[in-house]
Computed example of a mutant assay.
Amino acid sequence: MTVGQGLMEAQSARFASVDPLLPSVAAPPEGDVITAALPDGTRVAGVLSRQVHDRRSPARLWSATEVWELTPLLGAACAAGMDALLRAWRKRLDLLGPAERDSACVLTWPSRDAEATRALLDHGLVPLTVIAVRQAPAPQVTGGAVIRRATPADLETVLTLALAELRYSSMVGSTVHRPDAVELKRRTLAERLAAGGPAWLAERDGIAVALAECAVVTSEPGNATSTRLPHGRWGYVNCVSVLPGARGVGLGRQLMAHAHRELQRLGTVGTYLYYNPPNPLSSVFWPRQGYRPLWTMWEVRPAGALR
């Protein structure tokens, strides 16, 4: 058994003790291997990958352009192992030279592993995003809105609501409001609506005031989703937006109850989404809808600010 395999198996066992919903640790992606040693001789490792998003990539709306991502393999080690690996990461960045301003260091770790949190905070990383999951029957919620499926003919309406969410999120999370955001969003949403992606509009007096834009994703062996979620067919909540003047009256709750029922009807085992803990709206709304954090994405921008 190789050292890497041993670290993966030990880490899988620890993850299972922290949160039984976490999938087994998968082989890390291709990249540069970083290792570190603890005072007792225990060794930990990580794989560092670099990605530069193309200027026209929609990923630049929620990400820095240049991203350095570390996948830790700590085995059974926890806070001490994370601290040692982050120190080694900082040294590796020093060897690479100054980072671009539009850059970030990113690391994803189980949300319930509180022991690792201190090391992550001490090295300047911030919990900007969580992957949250929900596995519960859809509640029966009534309200004054009329909810209908969005179609390609609704593109401009959907775009307006999605951009409202993007502008707000850019103040309180990892989202970046790029100069070409309108065209990037229009192109992506047009493709999703044309493909029949599940999206719903809530209307009051015939005017759309809220959007839930979703997808159905399968977690199966070998694909990227399986590294984050148990195997099965999952509903993905990509964007929920309620216009400011329509907030606070239960419209979002009614819309999501409808979306949850429809996604369950499509045979999903649960739903998941990304939200920003610093967001004062989503950090309250989503737990009330039955979501709880599974993974936390820790980040520091620019990449050179890693301590």
Rank of each mutant, 00 (worst) to 15 (best):
V209Y: 00
A190G: 11
V158R: 00
R265E: 14
Y291E: 02
R178C: 01
Y275N: 01
A145G: 10
V284L: 10
L201Y: 02
R265C: 08
A208Q: 02
T151F: 05
G197Y: 04
A303R: 06
P280K: 02
V249S: 00
G41D: 06
V269F: 04
R14N: 05
M8R: 15
P127M: 06
E115I: 07
V141S: 03
G232R: 06
L161A: 00
R301K: 12
A138T: 04
E100C: 11
V172Y: 08
I207W: 09
V249T: 09
L93F: 09
C214H: 07
V209C: 01
P139S: 08
S174F: 09
M297R: 15
T160N: 03
A132D: 03
T175H: 15
D205P: 05
E165Q: 12
A64D: 08
A36R: 06
A79L: 07
E299V: 12
V146G: 12
R178E: 02
G4D: 15
L166R: 02
V33Y: 06
A77S: 13
A26F: 07
A199I: 01
S169M: 08
T227A: 15
G196R: 12
L294R: 03
I34Q: 11
L306M: 10
L73F: 09
P58A: 02
V141Q: 04
R87Q: 12
S103T: 03
L70Q: 07
A13E: 15
T296G: 03
P244N: 01
A145R: 05
L96Q: 13
L61R: 04
V216Q: 11
H177Q: 13
P293V: 06
Q264N: 11
A99S: 15
N276V: 06
A153E: 15
T2D: 15
T35I: 09
G235L: 10
A195V: 06
G270C: 06
G222T: 02
E203D: 09
G267F: 12
S57T: 05
L74C: 04
S17L: 15
L229I: 08
D54F: 01
E191A: 14
D32R: 15
L38N: 10
E156Q: 10
D40R: 08
